[in-house]
Write a protein that binds this DNA or RNA. Structure first.
Lengths: 188, 188
DNA sequence: GTCTATAGGGTGATAGAC
DNA sequence: GTCTATCACCCTATAGAC
């Protein structure tokens, strides 16, 4: 179901690509159809309306988010490490769906914004479970939000943030906030 | 110049209002003209094109940002306190211009994104000057970004963040990161 | 300065051929 | 399943009356 080479999936891939590289406004049915290598009519056979196309992408995001949820909680480096490091784009399928939906949310699409908030809620819950102090958990979540905001919305990571070791530095700073316990390895 | 009741300013106010409440896509010349109480033709007399309208808003933002820069550096509560607290919407004229430009940046508008990055750069510089450690400064800036992301883009502050004292709590957590010196009062 | 009218281009969606 | 018209609508911008 997730990685089939059906026409539907190829169209969703194209939709994502156009959204990510050119934004919501450019993601017209015409543009998506062209990127998918079909005509507008062909696209509309698989997705009866633009809203249906959006819903398809939102479902895809939800599938990926559920998978990420498990990975996040069982991450060997620890939940906080995992969440912070994956806050900045790395090119996974989940990432791509997430950024595409972000572009959608940037437009006006209410459903996309809700879906995004739901993904964020998963992260927040996991961080709260990993760190004792709720105020610290909130701080860490906000840092994650900040990384995400910079990398996907502002597109401004030419400065210090791509630098190798910047992430380790950041995690070291955040590590100082959890008085009791483990940044890395809360082991078995 | 900044607070005159000229027709230009009334139109820019209307542009802001529509952008904030209905998003970039809804901010058509028709909608802005209606909100400003003029016709489309009337609007286009003052701003020759939609691009000119955007430029007008960007100039307004820059004026406010320059004023904010001074306030930020001379804030009696300290720069970090000031930046963090003003990261979440409070309804100032600066805020409104900032959010309006954000909505614009959410579309595709490159100039708006650049303007937003410039404002962020002002904050980052000021924080770096106030806090010794650059890694800590970056962390604080990311928290500010996160607050901004949540309040203006996700619109998700119904949870813990509006709560009275949430900001104090957050600032207390961040205060633990500056080993040497003063959250509040680096006084005279 | 502000209005109405209209040109010109793009967008989502339908109908019907293949 | 996929394509080529084609429709109705909305958006920016211009022209010219008042």
């Amino acid at each position: 179901m997730p990685r089939a080479d059906t026409a539907r999936d190829r169209i969703l891939d194209a939709f994502q690509r156009v959204l990510i590289s050119s934004g919501e406004r450019a993601a017209t049915l015409d543009a998506v159809a062209a990127a998918a290598g079909v005509s507008k009519g062909g696209l509309l056979y698989h997705f009866a309306s633009k809203d249906a196309l959006v819903d398809g992408l939102l479902e895809r995001l939800d599938t990926f988010a559920a998978a990420d949820d498990e990975r996040m909680r069982s991450a060997p480096e620890g939940t906080v490490d995992y969440v912070i490091r994956t806050s900045v784009e790395e090119g996974s399928a989940f990432d791509e769906a997430l950024i595409a939906v972000s572009r959608l949310a940037q437009g006006s699409h209410e459903k996309a914004r809700t879906a995004l908030a739901a993904v964020r809620a998963r992260w927040e819950t996991a961080i709260a479970a990993a760190v004792g102090d709720p105020a610290v958990a909130r701080t860490i979540m906000l840092v994650s939000d900040g990384l995400y905001y910079n990398s996907t919305l502002l597109g401004a990571f030419e400065t210090s943030d791509t630098r190798d070791g910047a992430m380790d530095e950041l995690l070291a700073v955040l590590g100082r906030l959890t008085p009791a316990s483990p940044g890395p390895a809360a082991a078995s």
